[in-house]
Design a protein around this nucleic acid. Structure first.
Lengths: 222, 222
DNA sequence: GTGGAAGCGGAGGCAATCTCCGTTCCGCCT
DNA sequence: AGGCGGAACGGAGATTGCCTCCGCTTCCAC
């Protein structure tokens, strides 16, 4: 069950810790891709990353096309859906989070590893404003291109969770999906601008130990 | 600080436990409102409630107008923003939740009261698909009509929280806002169709006691 | 019943999504 | 080298949703 080699977030472009990052994000597997096509694709990708970062995941796609100097048709041919474009711009960040997963795996304390992983997850989900929403959708109906990478994220969450559970550091009834969904909920609240650092810490604390006072003898929540 | 009379969610239409529900939602305070105007308003409201329930909070407003048999202009005159319409259709549910607050207040156990209140909150936030999003926005920038009722919800959360804290049943560092934001996050995840009953329970459990195993001597999360 | 104002509603401006198809450009093959 | 086939382009435009403006209708008070 537990796999120790970091799985790639995307089918192609297998990555491990020490690799030099391939500068071109996701050269699609089977296509020799004509010269102008590649040029346009890269331009779109660069522009999109900038716009997503500046305006959130719902920024206008036509505007991206315009600024990238291509027609809307070109953009939609390369990336048939918003999710596809989103997924493509996220590949770099996915390399980051995989690296952090590798680092966390090295940690001696299973709880610290889990904490570090969940922190990495929060950072990843904060990449763009509004990112948690498409991620949640992708998990539930795995038609999206994002779904592939999301499943990996859940799997990694499961890995760190299981390890902590074996040490008695995480409650045994927690499932990877449940933990991931909770993290998503937190991220959704937090990555709206306007939630201060105080509340961020508080929400994370509730995530870890709940709102109930501890030291009592109840066996189960609910 | 603690107020024991249930505050109304809306400035007008004060409600207490035993009242017969006024059938007309929110007859606006100062306007004698011409006959056709009232008729149209009611029609819009009924149609809107149906559409919000069926298609979520982002359903088309023009479509509501069309089906209600009025022009778009009429809809927008009565309800200048989506939030305004949303708030108006929510008044009935707000009566519900206030009643449940009253009921919870009667409970002897402060923790049970808090739990019951949080449950009521979840039910309220599940009224329409996507409701948590406008609620979160309303809290952060209180320009919206929804903001008024939201502040009341936070206040009520604070009331039950404080009571539980005095009994040592809730952690002292939790704030009303933090607790409410967490509840919002959970609700956001849960009220997308596709999350099963199992996960619902699990998320609620994490909310209450966290994911970490208890019975250890750490004083604080983080 | 009539005047004046409250209220109506739809035409239309604007913005975003996504498609279709005539045109352009690439690169392979002779 | 130069031409051919198809890959790729891009923009016009159909569609949908938001929201406003303003000439017309309807109510109700007198």
């Amino acid at each position: 069950m537990r796999q120790h080699a970091t799985p790639s977030l995307l089918p192609c472009a297998r990555r491990t810790l020490g690799d030099a990052l391939p500068m071109n994000t996701n050269p699609p597997d089977k296509s020799p891709l004509r010269a102008d096509a590649r040029r346009n694709r890269d331009s779109i990708l660069r522009t999109a990353a900038r716009h997503f970062a500046a305006n959130g995941v719902n920024t206008s796609l036509d505007e991206i096309a315009r600024e990238a100097g291509v027609g809307p048709g070109t953009l939609y041919r390369h990336f048939p859906s918003r999710d596809a474009l989103l997924a493509a711009t996220l590949t770099e960040r996915q390399a980051d989070i995989l690296a952090r997963a590798d680092a966390a795996r090295e940690m001696a304390c299973s709880e610290a590893a889990l904490t570090e992983w969940l922190r990495a997850l929060q950072d990843y989900l904060a990449t763009y404003d509004g990112l948690p929403a498409p991620v949640l959708t992708a998990i539930q109906e795995d038609t999206s291109v994002l779904a592939i990478s999301c499943e990996t994220l859940v799997a990694l969450t499961g890995e760190f969770l299981t390890r902590a559970q074996k040490d008695g550091r995480a409650r045994a009834t927690i499932t990877p999906q449940g933990l991931f969904l909770s993290a998503l909920g937190i991220a959704w609240v937090l990555n709206r601008a306007g939630v201060g650092e105080t509340h961020r810490r508080e929400l994370e604390a509730i995530f870890v130990v709940g709102y109930r006072e501890r030291g009592r003898l109840l066996d189960e929540a609910e």
